[in-house]
Amino acid sequence: MRESGAPSPVVVIVDDEPGIRRFVRTALETAGCSVVEAGTAERGGIELAARKPDLLILDLGLPDDDGLAVLAALRTWSGVPVLVLSARNDEQDKVAALDAGADDYLTKPFGIAELQARVRALLRRALRPADGPARIRFGDIEVDLARRSVTRNGEPVHLTPIEFKLLAHLIAHAGRVLTHRQLLTTVWGPNHVEHNHYLRVYMGGLRRKLEANPGFPAHLLTESGVGYRLVL
């Protein structure tokens, strides 16, 4: 997670449960981050302003304030990546957080591997915001973004313009969840945000062209009720 020689990324975790803060700290320190803990939204606000962290991990169910309100306040002055923790079952909450500016979410209970993968994906973007590589490989697939070509085991794969646009957007946010709304707005435009089934049909098409087993995808993952995630 850390480039050799670079300073260790600073992560602020705001959660009222000390046990969760404790294990998140252990997991992230093992991965080379320095971690600052806050038990309340108020404390979190102070730490955010003082530390200028590289990542915020925010529990949505704080005792003193709604996590969404904290997020909205933060987004007025900072673009720091935010990973939301949700104990709630309701996918609508997660979508609301993502649409309010959160970058990704984890549902409790989550494992350390999952946590580290999410943090890594968010820090990659935060620490290297410049253009990613023009050539991306995942599974048998190689995508050349500059030449707009896709090959599978060296064989060219034909993607429609919409499929390619969808794939390019997922690649640009690899490892992160993108909501239906975000994808529909980017690929089809803001007038199509209600046409969820367009997106689903095209994702199905992409999987059939790119996944070894489209019924059990390894890269183009579904986050039910929320959106999609490309895992490289």
Binding site: E17, G19, R22, F23, A27, T30, K108, P109, I112
Partner: peptide, 16 residues
């Protein structure tokens, strides 16, 4: 969920 998440996470982070 919250304490059980902490419990599972703490157990997992024990080796770390």
């Amino acid at each position: 969920r919250t304490p059980l998440t902490a419990l599972a996470g703490l157990a997992e982070s024990l080796p770390l």
